[in-house]
């Protein structure tokens, strides 16, 4: 045995897990964050995620380029987001309900057209070895980072800045907070929401491509176990703040690695309960940080969910 990390394996695995598993959560929640800041909810991003995973993998296989796969997934997500945005323009159409139906439709389309791509092996996305400085193979493995993860972090910072300090950000926020004041400012709320939903869809599509093209790096019908739905919910946890979305995604990814890591060091009784760690931790933090006085701080005023 060259290096036995012993109990150190657990924090290393949590670090690795946070890096590996968090990216889809990050992209979907950033996308949803943008959409919700414009005052609309797209609950169907689980469908977009799976659609992105399928189209990313399929395109990568057909073209031989994983990058094309990612871009294709983004495009598919964008178009799918546009559809949601367009449908919700009509008076009396409920955005949450449309989202749920689109979740169904997205999964359906992905599974329908994804059958021929389950068996073939497509080119995957490469990783950057950030652990070259360490002798520990565990740490080296944990620090294998995909560029999408880095883009995701940059995107979180960018979105936070954009929403706070740019004209576009202001426009989105105004639309999200009050349709009437937006109209008063000669902003067309439907158009802003349309593009905010489309952008959110594109990000969710990229999240899906990460699933199928990097980690776990496989296309099959069980590729997403509800990550998309969870990520949408995490936006509430993150209080509609992109930076918080990053922390939430990292927390979720890292805590998810706890279960296997603990088993690997011999703590295996009650593994189901360890696997629930991300949910328990998130709920705990949620309860600890919520209060009735500032229940909906940061929540866009036009959001269906917080009215």
């Amino acid at each position: 045995m060259t290096t036995d990390p012993g109990l150190w394996a657990v924090p290393i695995a949590v670090l690795g897990g946070a890096i590996r598993v968090s990216t889809p959560f990050l992209f979907v929640s950033l996308g949803e964050c943008l959409t919700e800041r414009s005052g609309r909810i797209n609950l169907g991003l689980e469908g977009t995620l799976i659609l992105g995973a399928m189209s990313g993998y399929g395109l990568s296989y057909l073209t031989g380029s994983a990058t094309v796969g990612v871009l294709g997934a983004a495009l598919v997500g964008l178009v799918y987001g546009l559809l949601h945005g367009w449908l919700c323009r009509f008076k009396g159409v409920n955005d949450i309900a449309v989202g749920i139906s689109m979740m169904l439709l997205g999964m359906g389309i992905a599974f329908y057209f994804g059958k021929p791509f389950i068996q073939p092996t497509a080119p995957r996305l490469p990783s950057i070895p950030f652990g070259w400085w360490s002798d520990s193979p565990q740490l080296q493995a944990a620090l294998q980072v995909n560029v999408l993860f880095l883009i995701g972090i940059a995107l979180a910072v960018f979105l936070a800045w954009m929403l706070r300090s740019t004209r576009i950000g202001l426009t989105i926020r105004v639309v999200g907070d009050s349709t009437q004041s937006a109209r008063a400012l000669a902003i067309r709320p439907d158009r802003v929401r349309l593009w905010a939903t489309a952008a959110g869809g594109a990000l969710a599509g990229i999240g899906g491509a990460y699933l199928s093209l990097y980690y776990p790096g496989s296309w099959n019908e069980g590729i997403s176990s509800g990550q998309g739905l969870m990520a949408v919910a995490l936006v509430i946890f993150a209080r509609w703040n992109p930076i918080n979305c990053l922390w939430a995604a990292l927390l979720f990814g890292g805590a998810g690695a706890l279960g296997p890591a603990l088993q690997s060091v011999g703590i295996s009784e009650g593994y189901y309960l360890f696997y629930a760690a991300p949910y328990v931790l998130t709920l705990g933090i949620l309860i600890a940080t919520s209060s009735t006085e500032r229940a909906v701080i940061g929540a866009p005023g036009e959001l269906n969910i917080t009215k």
Binding site: R20, V21, A141, G217, S218, N220, Q227, P260
Partner: peptide, 11 residues
Amino acid sequence: LAVKEAEATNA
């Protein structure tokens, strides 16, 4: 359960 299987293999 794809992601968990991958995590277990990595562990």
